[in-house]
């Protein structure tokens, strides 16, 4: 592979651009292909198959050819509401997973850069914050403040946008109160039941890093179930 192609892969990864790398295994020639771009004449005869692999985010060799395609997909967007102790561990644990974390907390003393270096922190109320964050059914929400004033608007947004994973921290009681409030806001039982509350899978631990681990485990599970 040419160094300049290799460097472009790194550049695209850092810029969070989705792309594919097409390699002719016979000649060693590689090309970068961005979705929507026209395909180089060199690989043109395989255009349909290449598009198929890219659309379906597949890796592999095109049948009966020497063409290998690898698609590089963007990380899954995960919104954390609450710049609390558990959030610090979640961010630490997800460093090597393919998640893009965005942290929301209107409380300035929690959401400091000192506590959360190298993470996108939105220091606003959720309603305001979501105006500047693109979200859809590929987005996940981890809600950690157990303060209705901060959590509820985020949960409402996530339910409306059909996030694939919604988890909310809080005890059984806190969660049932939360469900009552959401019912009042007009959400049906199915929607409310889709919230993972109390959040996380049962690992038994109670310390912040252990709770963070149980949340990450559940998030990963649901990411593969979506």
């Amino acid at each position: 592979m040419e160094l300049k192609i290799f460097q472009e892969i790194i550049k695209n990864k850092n810029k969070k651009i989705e792309f594919s790398v097409i390699t002719n295994l016979e000649t060693g020639n590689s090309k970068i292909f961005l979705v929507g771009e026209t395909i180089d004449e060199y690989f043109f005869e395989h255009e349909k198959k290449i598009q198929f692999f890219c659309r379906n985010k597949k890796n592999g060799i095109i049948e009966n050819t020497n063409i290998f395609i690898q698609t590089f997909i963007n990380p899954v967007k995960v919104i954390i509401v609450g710049a609390v102790h558990i959030a610090q561990y979640i961010i630490e644990f997800t460093k090597y997973l393919n998640f893009e974390i965005i942290l929301i907390d209107p409380r300035k003393f929690f959401a400091t850069e000192e506590r959360f270096p190298k993470i996108k922190v939105v220091n606003k109320w959720p309603e305001e914050a979501f105006k500047e964050i693109i979200t859809d059914s590929n987005t996940a929400l981890i809600s950690l403040t157990h303060n209705p004033k901060i959590d509820d608007p985020a949960l409402i947004h996530a339910l409306k946008k059909n996030f694939y994973y919604i988890g909310a921290l809080g005890s059984q009681n806190t969660h049932s109160d939360r469900c009552e409030r959401l019912k009042f806001f007009g959400f049906n039982e199915n929607e409310i039941n889709s919230i993972h509350g109390p959040i996380g899978i049962k690992l038994g631990g109670k310390s912040p890093p252990e709770i963070a681990l149980s949340i990450i485990a559940q998030l990963t599970l649901e990411t593969y179930n979506k």
Binding site: L3, Q7, I9, I10, K13, N14, K57, N59, Q70, F72, I73, P75, V76, K95, Y96, L97, N98, T220, T223, Y224
Partner: peptide, 18 residues
Amino acid sequence: MNNSFDKKFLEKTNDWLK
């Protein structure tokens, strides 16, 4: 989730390229 150019991989690669 598949991320063959993960953080560790990228860091090492950058070091060697430099």
